[in-house]
């Protein structure tokens, strides 16, 4: 290992420093400086609407920026190594082995004509040099680790036989097959049903506790990020408008945009009902105008 550069705590597995990303097609900067450090077992969340630059930031860290997008400033370090100017061969080593990712649409990342188990086994064979049998064994272990109920059965199934939630588990299994230190989950639960989303989030939290995996959780939903993250970055049109420990962002938001995100949940989300103490809840007569009462109550509470 090359010596760790000065100023970086030895434990940082992923460090972004004032990362800027430019779009060469329209000749403008899309991401205006993102910085965070991720140590093992920690979870950083990035919240923002589509087009806020959250996905580009992740892709930059994975070295898979779309065509015509370049990192134009700042630095990204993975386990202490600057990734600028990495050779493609080094990237291949790094991806999967050190940093890995899952995305929104799991089905499109798997080959529909190969059983999913074999695709996971392939990762261990290529990345860890396991032989066929050991790789199969490892794949079954992984499928069990992502809490799929019948690993043997799932191993031989194809993508079209699995539900969205199961596919996302399979993809997580493949992503952690080579024992990465960082896993980026970019809107990994967005397309899933709420109950399944909770299962996947629980799984990620579980993996982090058991293996010390560091996570970057990207979502447009502040509540999703709030549930699993230690630190939150709120991004808006390429700018980090708020950054801090989760509790601080939730309870002492400084930027109006963060406040807007919180307000949305409080006014229209479940929080509105859950916040009201159950004993105080007005008698619901079902006449249809209890909502008005709820609103008044909310105003009063504020």
């Amino acid at each position: 290992m090359t010596p760790v550069p000065e100023g970086v705590p030895e434990s940082a597995v992923l460090a972004l420093r004032d990362v800027r990303i430019r779009d060469e097609v329209n000749d403008r900067e899309i991401v205006h400086g993102v910085s965070f450090e991720l140590t093992p077992g920690r979870v950083v969340g990035i919240v923002g609407e589509s087009g806020s630059g959250k996905t580009l930031t992740c892709r930059a860290a994975l070295g898979i920026l779309p065509e015509h997008f370049v990192v134009s400033g700042g630095s990204i370090e993975i386990t202490g190594h600057d990734i600028a100017g990495l050779t493609p061969a080094r990237w291949v080593d790094l991806r999967g082995g050190t940093i890995s990712a899952v995305f929104q649409d799991p089905a499109s990342y798997l080959n529909p004509s190969i059983p999913v188990g074999r695709q996971i086994a392939e990762v261990s064979r290529v990345k860890k040099g396991l032989n066929r049998r050991a790789a199969r064994h490892r794949a079954l272990e992984l499928l069990a680790a992502v809490r799929l109920r019948d690993p043997e059965l799932v191993y031989g199934q194809f993508t079209f036989e699995l539900s969205g939630g199961m596919l996302q588990r399979v993809l997580i299994a493949a992503a952690i097959a080579a024992g990465p230190k960082v896993l980026i989950a970019d809107e990994a639960t967005t397309a899933l049903d709420v109950t399944v989303q909770a299962e996947i989030l629980d799984l990620l939290a579980d993996l982090r506790e058991r293996t010390g995996l560091a996570l970057v959780v990207v979502s447009h939903d502040l509540a999703v990020v709030a549930q699993v993250c230690d630190e939150v970055l709120v991004m808006r049109s390429g700018e980090v408008v708020e950054q801090g420990p989760t509790a601080q962002v939730l309870y002492q938001p400084r930027h109006e945009y963060t406040r807007l995100l919180i307000d949305e949940h409080e006014q229209y989300g479940l929080d509105r009902f859950l916040d009201a103490p159950a004993a105080d809840a007005p008698e619901v007569d079902g006449s249809g105008d209890h909502l008005g009462a709820g609103e008044k109550e909310l105003d009063r509470v504020r």
């Binding site: 060469e24 097609v25 000749d27 065509e67 015509h68």
Partner: peptide, 15 residues
């Protein structure tokens, strides 16, 4: 995709 490649090339040269 084709048009993007061209525009990016132009911008890169201009930059």
């Amino acid at each position: 995709a084709l048009l993007n490649t061209r525009r990016a090339r132009v911008n890169r040269v201009a930059d």
